[in-house]
Write a protein that binds this DNA or RNA. Structure first.
Lengths: 201, 201
DNA sequence: CACCAACGAGAACGACCGTTCTCCACCGAT
DNA sequence: ATCGGTGGAGAACGGTCGTTCTCGTTGGTG
């Protein structure tokens, strides 16, 4: 029963809702505001998304796609797992400097709806777990222990919340340096100084 | 015109609101629920707090006090700035393992109200800035550069959001190890290996 | 041209929330 | 004992929100 351009309409509504939710916070955006931003009608929206919660989950999925496309773009020039790993922070750097940067949408959603919406919690957990898996994979390819992956992931998360609250543009670069130190330190402990103390700047 | 037990009443209302806000999220708690939890009356509450936003700000101040008392308790046995620094993560460890741990109240509030309440934003920023200043002071006492302080702070923030989302009890210990590595690495670069590679476990 | 299904605009509905107001019971002072 | 004012319980008010419904229009089909 899906109309041909239903997927396009869904995408437009999700993008509109994403803009509003991210800037104003989910609970501060009524469905009528989504309708206006999407240039659609309430009937159409509720035909495609049974409830606001479904729309929120779809928006989070959209954010996940944005995240990975940004990560991949930043990793384009990386030639080693180590460079790929550190390029995450280059992606963050560009993102943090955007005018309307307002923190990680997943963390914000978790703070706002974590207590009331298990589906939102699941979506947030899934995203964060996939990031951790990505980092873990790259760390393993460097021959390092999983502990280092968790530590680098802490820097990724900490950079996002700190950048959101302080609005300091240098946070990502600082996190990148810290990650390089952690990787180097784990490297010398693991198998002796392969490329000792290069330290990335 | 302040009645003698106004301060006690304020404290009880703030504590009640804190419990509800933290567990359910601020916007999911009506003033009537606060009234019930505090065993007070709406008139009394609105006599002491002109609006819900004022109550939220007071709750955040209360959370700040809780934070610092926890940090100081954990730092009680610390004999060096370095130990004091790392004891922050011991405090976090105990906190993360509490049953009703639901992340950092400041980060959650920022995600929920950051877009609509400048006063909440200011309170959150103030708390995070004071934590950063505390870390910076201890790092300086170790003779290390301010950059290291920012990096350790990223671990503190990252540990809080990661622990909230994953509910993994080992996050604080992992962050502590990472912080020790960062301190050691900065130490050997700054003034040669004073106590090289002790590394705290 | 007549008809039916789908669609948009927006009203309507029920629930909830922040804030204020009403009313009554209580309590110390005269 | 009476009175004034204080505080509590809870109704009331205005607003918003998620969701559904009505209704008029349209555009394709016989």
């Amino acid at each position: 029963m899906t109309r041909p351009d239903d997927t396009a309409a869904r995408a437009g509504i999700v993008a509109a809702a994403d803009r509003l939710f991210y800037v104003r916070g989910i609970q501060n955006v009524g469905m009528d505001a989504v309708r206006a931003e999407a240039g659609s009608s309430l009937k159409r929206i509720y035909g495609l998304f049974p409830s606001k919660e479904d729309l929120v989950v779809a928006v989070l999925a959209h954010r996940t796609a944005i995240w990975w496309s940004g990560v991949e773009r930043a990793a384009a020039g990386a030639r080693t797992p180590r460079e790929r790993l550190l390029s995450i922070f280059d992606f963050l750097d560009g993102w943090f400097r955007e005018d309307d940067f307002r923190g990680c949408a997943f963390i914000n959603s978790f703070g706002e709806l974590g207590a009331t919406s298990p589906r939102v919690v699941a979506a947030v957990r899934e995203q964060k777990e996939s990031v951790r898996a990505y980092v873990r994979d790259l760390v393993r390819r460097e021959g390092l222990a999983d502990d280092v992956a968790l530590q680098v992931d802490l820097l990724v998360e900490g950079a996002q919340t700190t950048a959101a609250i302080t609005r300091d543009g240098g946070v990502a670069a600082q996190a990148r340096r810290a990650a390089a130190v952690l990787l180097d330190a784990a490297g010398v402990e693991a198998d002796g100084p392969a490329e000792p103390g290069r330290g990335d700047r």
